[in-house]
Design a protein around this nucleic acid. Sequence first.
DNA 1: TTCAAATCTTTCGATATTGAAATAATAACA
DNA 2: TGTTATTATTTCAATATCGAAAGATTTGAA
Lengths: 165, 165
Amino acid sequence: MPTHFEGDERTKLALDTFIKFTRAAGAFESRLLHRGQLGDLTLSQFGVLETLHHLGPLCPGQISAKLLKSSGNITLVLDNLEKQGLVQRVRDTEDRRKITLTLTPAGEAVITEVFPRQAAVIADEMSALTPAEQETLGRLCKKLGLGASESPDSIVNQPNPLSVS
Amino acid sequence: MPTHFEGDERTKLALDTFIKFTRAAGAFESRLLHRGQLGDLTLSQFGVLETLHHLGPLCPGQISAKLLKSSGNITLVLDNLEKQGLVQRVRDTEDRRKITLTLTPAGEAVITEVFPRQAAVIADEMSALTPAEQETLGRLCKKLGLGASESPDSIVNQPNPLSVS
DNA sequence: TTCAAATCTTTCGATATTGAAATAATAACA
DNA sequence: TGTTATTATTTCAATATCGAAAGATTTGAA
């Protein structure tokens, strides 16, 4: 949408950029989902398996922090992965509040199979940009996303600046 | 996540960029939600109201296409907006398959109140980037998102290129 | 005209997602 | 030690989201 907004130039540019940004993110994710390299996995499930695959056993809170999702959400995704026999929950004997998630052999097999394919799809989609452009995009995204490295659980309502003059 | 991936350089850069991109999008949306300018509206509901506000009465299919969401999803969001008395469904007399959505006076009032505030929040968040950077981000996002301007309903499973060498 | 194909919306089942409340266990401290 | 605060996970209710199938209606072609 070309915004259809009549306001000051700064706001107009921000809205225009925001829309392109949001749409590109949605479209990218959608195409990732429709290129059939995920097998029976959802994108969330892939994210969790990938995290455990590359970082080793973690507890739900850590996964939540890595993926920037709420703890409640992670619980559900883990439930579904456990139903499929891809991960295993083990109660920590030191601190019995904690639970450690491990990939089962089946889970390890799935992610070992799926990850390289998905990486290839991502690389292919990303190849719409030159390497230099990718670096730029990454840098701008990082700058834009700064300060937001907490999972939803921990986000508190900020005092309302709205100092946009 | 710094990816923890050991592959060829091109794939590594793509994954790294992808992660920054995805995270920034999620973080941005999350902060938009937590700056309290939306009242009782969800982001989806805001999107629908904003679309009707700026484009005038539309039918569900058009809203679906504008927002790149599935028709089933739009039906639900409209249901919730209708429950709140913010939009109204009217069956089209010409083509009785269609339904036209209109903002009620209450809906018009809400979006007129909320939109400028939300626009200010977006401008404020976006001000992490200079105008020039915003233009660049917009251009790169557009390039990255090209060809994906269809709503989920209409996306067909592409024959699997995976021609990533 | 009539029937098959196409179009538009809704319904349905499954998964995702949040935020708040509930549970359980540990840590801190008077 | 006993009570309170903190931390970790799960549960719950509400909304979002998809994709496929169902329903209703119109179009197009024989």
